[in-house]
């Protein structure tokens, strides 16, 4: 699904990513740990192709296509989606309009979809205007449900979310990645299987999201490089380790 080769990225004069190699298989959920400022968000922004993130070396292959220099919207149309941590407010743009635009030519029931993330009452609000932490996440998830990408990048899905919302958000993230948790007469097997091929790349600090999703692999980013290739290790083990020892361990590994 995603293959990143020796990716080096600069923001202004500062080299932030110093040669990242990563691959994510179809249907796989990958967890990225790392302290603040290590380059995790930069990686996501670079994958989406936003301005200001200059790729100085390496390449990004998505679904067999070299997307390293594609504009953002072409990446999105190819099946790359992202849940933003701090999305901008767009005044005068109603949430329901944005959600239906996310679906492009697909036919969706915006209202029913919004109900499933308890967001139907926000459909007439301007997007992100005065949304709380939990509301932003639900809005982002709703847009992604409409967009239906093949690989979803989550930038800290649990930040700013209270416990009550966390369960709903966790469950929705899982549904997006793994298909419906519960068998449902409304979803045929074909759709279920198709959804099953959705891949995820999740940035997390707290690890709360691990209580909800089936994380397959994880790695730690530290100072612009990935360490701790944990092929046999589960993300949960990394989290336990970091919780106990902090990121000191990573520095030792790198040295």
């Amino acid at each position: 699904m995603l293959q990143i080769e020796n990716l080096q990225v600069r923001i202004g004069d500062k080299e932030v990513l110093k040669g990242i190699n990563m691959h994510i298989e179809e249907g796989e959920t990958f967890i990225l740990f790392g302290p603040n400022g290590s380059g995790k968000t930069t990686l996501l922004m670079t994958l989406m192709g936003f301005a200001g993130y200059e790729v100085t070396a390496g390449k990004i292959i998505f679904k067999g296509v070299d997307i390293t220099s594609l504009p953002t919207y072409e990446r999105a149309r190819l099946g790359l989606g992202m849940s933003f941590q701090r999305p901008p407010t767009i005044h005068g743009l109603k949430t329901k309009h944005l959600v239906s635009m996310c679906a492009r030519n697909r036919n969706i029931d915006v209202y029913a979809m919004a109900q499933s993330v308890n967001f139907d009452k926000f459909l007439d609000r301007d997007i992100n205007a005065g949304f709380s932490g939990g509301e932003i996440k639900r809005s982002e998830l709703l847009q992604l449900m409409a967009q239906n990408p093949d690989l979803i990048l989550f930038d800290e899905p649990e930040s700013g979310v209270d416990l009550e919302n966390m369960a709903l958000i966790g469950k929705t993230v899982r549904t997006l990645l793994d298909g419906a948790c519960d068998p449902s007469p409304e979803t045929c097997m074909r759709d279920l299987r198709r959804r099953h091929t959705t891949s995820g790349l999740i940035i997390t600090h707290t690890g709360y999201i691990l209580d909800y999703v089936n994380a397959d692999r994880g790695q730690v980013m530290y100072n612009g490089v990935l360490c701790c290739d944990t092929r046999p290790t589960r993300p949960r083990d990394i989290l336990d380790h970091i919780t106990k020892f902090g990121y000191k361990e990573c520095i030792r590994c790198l040295n």
Binding site: M48, F50, A51, P71, T72, Y73, A76, R77, G81, M82, F84, P87, P88, I90, H91, G92, L93, H97, L98, M101, C102, R104, D126, Q143, Q147
Partner: peptide
């Protein structure tokens, strides 16, 4: 704001679509 255009582009709108969506919202 470039940030607003990029947000919409991440949802699959090209730059012109994103700009006109923001403009229509702005005129409100």
């Amino acid at each position: 704001a470039q940030e607003e255009i990029e947000y919409l582009m991440a949802r699959g709108l090209d730059e012109d679509e994103a700009t006109s969506t923001i403009v229509r919202g702005f005129l409100n």
